[in-house]
Amino acid sequence: IRKQWHEDITQDLRNHLVHKLVQAIFPTPDPAALKDRRMENLVAYARKVEGDMYESANNRAEYYHLLAEKIYKIQKELEEKRRT
């Protein structure tokens, strides 16, 4: 379902936000690492998460909020795993 606010969101912005999700899960300073085949699954997962939020959000603010919440949860989980 195409929503009115979707018209304001460019593909570049969506790609940028997918990249932010990927960085939250696997922070790497090396952009070449993103071309690694093992990263493809991670990028696919991040695209799916972003797509789900894009579809479920009712406006741009909610879209950003859902993504920020997801990134926060991912970082929290990773922190907890590092501690144990």
Results as ranks from 00 to 15, higher is better:
Ile71His: 02
Glu77Cys: 14
Lys70Trp: 05
Glu79Gln: 06
Glu7Asn: 09
Tyr63Trp: 01
Glu79Asp: 09
Glu40Gln: 11
Lys81Ala: 10
Leu66Gln: 05
Lys3His: 06
Asn41Lys: 12
Arg38His: 07
Asp12Phe: 06
Tyr72Gln: 14
Arg37Ser: 13
Pro29Ile: 08
Pro31Gly: 13
Ile1Asp: 06
Ile9Trp: 02
Pro31Val: 14
Lys76Cys: 13
Glu77Lys: 11
Ala46Leu: 04
Thr10Gly: 06
Leu21Gln: 02
Phe26Leu: 15
Ile25Phe: 12
Thr84Leu: 12
Ala24Met: 11
Gln75Ser: 09
Ile74Trp: 09
Pro31Phe: 13
Glu7Trp: 02
Thr28Ser: 09
Glu50Met: 01
Phe26Asn: 15
Val43Leu: 12
Glu7Thr: 06
Pro27Arg: 10
Leu21Lys: 00
Lys3Gly: 04
His19Ala: 11
Lys70Leu: 03
Glu77Thr: 13
Ala44His: 07
Ile1Tyr: 04
Ala32Phe: 05
Arg82Tyr: 00
Arg47Asn: 03
Ile1His: 00
Ala68Val: 07
Ile71Val: 09
Pro31Trp: 08
Asp30Phe: 14
Lys70Gly: 05
Val18Pro: 01
Phe26Lys: 15
Ala24His: 02
Lys70Thr: 03
Glu80Met: 07
Tyr45Gly: 03
Met39Glu: 08
Ala61Tyr: 05
Asn41Gln: 10
Asp12Pro: 01
Tyr72Leu: 13
Tyr54Thr: 03
His65Met: 07
Leu66Ser: 06
Val49Trp: 03
Glu50Ile: 04
Lys35Met: 09
Ile74Leu: 10
Ala44Arg: 10
Ser56Ile: 06
Lys81Tyr: 02
Pro29Met: 14
Ala32Lys: 14
Lys20Val: 05
Thr28Asp: 13
Pro31Lys: 11
Lys76Pro: 04
Leu13Gln: 11
Leu66Trp: 01
Leu67Met: 15
Thr10Leu: 01
Lys70Tyr: 12
Met39His: 13
Tyr63Thr: 01
His6Arg: 13
Asp52Cys: 11
Tyr54Cys: 04
Leu42Trp: 08
Gly51Gln: 15
Leu34Pro: 13
Arg83Glu: 11
Tyr72Met: 12
Leu66Asp: 01
Leu66Tyr: 01
Glu40Leu: 05
Glu40Thr: 11
Asp36Cys: 05
Met39Ile: 13
Asn59Ser: 14
His65Gly: 11
Pro29Ser: 15
Arg82Cys: 11
Glu7Met: 05
Lys48Asn: 08
Arg60Lys: 14
Gln11Val: 05
Ala33His: 10
Leu34Arg: 11
Gln75Val: 02
Ile71Met: 11
Gln4Asp: 15
His6Ile: 11
Glu69Pro: 01
Asn58Lys: 11
Arg37Phe: 08
Thr84Trp: 06
Tyr54Ala: 00
His6Leu: 04
Glu79Phe: 00
Leu78Pro: 14
Pro27Ile: 01
Ala33Thr: 10
Arg14Leu: 01
Asn58Trp: 01
Val18Ala: 02
Asp30Glu: 10
Tyr72Asn: 14
Glu77Val: 06
Asp52Tyr: 01
Met53Leu: 09
Lys76Tyr: 11
Val22Ala: 06
Arg60Tyr: 08
Ala68Thr: 13
Val49Thr: 03
Lys48Gly: 05
Lys81Phe: 04
Ala44Ile: 04
Gln11Ala: 09
Phe26Pro: 00
Lys35His: 08
Leu21Tyr: 00
Tyr45Met: 12
Lys70Pro: 01
Gln11Asp: 14
Trp5Ser: 08
Ala32His: 07
Arg82Ser: 12
Pro29Gln: 12
Ala46Phe: 02
Ser56Phe: 05
Tyr45Cys: 03
Met39Gln: 07
Val43Met: 06
Asn58Asp: 08
His19Asn: 09
Arg47Val: 02
Gln11Leu: 05
Leu34Ile: 15
Gln23Pro: 00
His16Asp: 13
Ala44Gln: 10
Lys35Trp: 05
Asp12Gly: 09
Ala24Gly: 02
Pro27Leu: 07
Tyr63Cys: 01
Arg82Glu: 14
Thr10Tyr: 03
Arg38Ile: 06
Val43Pro: 05
Phe26Thr: 15
Phe26Asp: 15
Lys76Ala: 14
Glu80Gly: 11
Glu62Gln: 03
Ala61Glu: 15
Ala44Met: 07
Glu50Lys: 01
Leu13Pro: 00
Tyr63Arg: 00
Glu79Trp: 03
Lys81Pro: 06
Leu13Asp: 15
Ile1Trp: 02
Asp36Glu: 12
Lys3Trp: 01
Met53Ser: 07
Asp36Ala: 07
Asn15Arg: 04
Asn58Gly: 06
Pro29Glu: 15
Thr28Gly: 12
Ala46Ile: 01
Ala33Leu: 09
Ser56Leu: 09
Leu67Tyr: 05
Asp52Met: 15
Gln4Leu: 09
Asn15Glu: 15
Ala44Thr: 11
Asn15Tyr: 03
Glu7His: 14
Arg37Pro: 15
Lys73Met: 09
Met53Trp: 00
Thr10Trp: 00
Glu79Leu: 06
Ala32Met: 12
Glu62Gly: 02
Glu79Arg: 10
Glu55Pro: 04
Glu55Asp: 12
His65Gln: 13
Asn58Phe: 00
Thr84Ile: 10
Ala44Cys: 02
Gln11Ser: 07
Tyr64Glu: 15
Gln11Arg: 04
Tyr72Lys: 15
Tyr54Val: 03
Leu42Gln: 08
Leu78Arg: 15
Gln11Lys: 03
Arg2Leu: 06
Arg60Ser: 12
Arg37Tyr: 12
Tyr72Arg: 15
Gln23His: 14
Pro27Asn: 09
Lys20Ala: 03
Arg47Tyr: 02
Val22Glu: 00
Ala68Asn: 15
Asp8Leu: 06
Tyr64Gln: 15
Ala61Thr: 13
Arg38Pro: 08
Pro31Cys: 12
His6Gln: 14
Ile74Gly: 08
His6Met: 04
Asp8Lys: 02
Lys76Gly: 08
His16Ala: 13
Arg82Leu: 07
Lys48Val: 04
Arg83Phe: 09
His65Cys: 04
Leu21Gly: 02
Arg37Gly: 15
Ala46Val: 02
Ala44Tyr: 00
Ala46Thr: 02
Glu69Trp: 01
Asp52His: 04
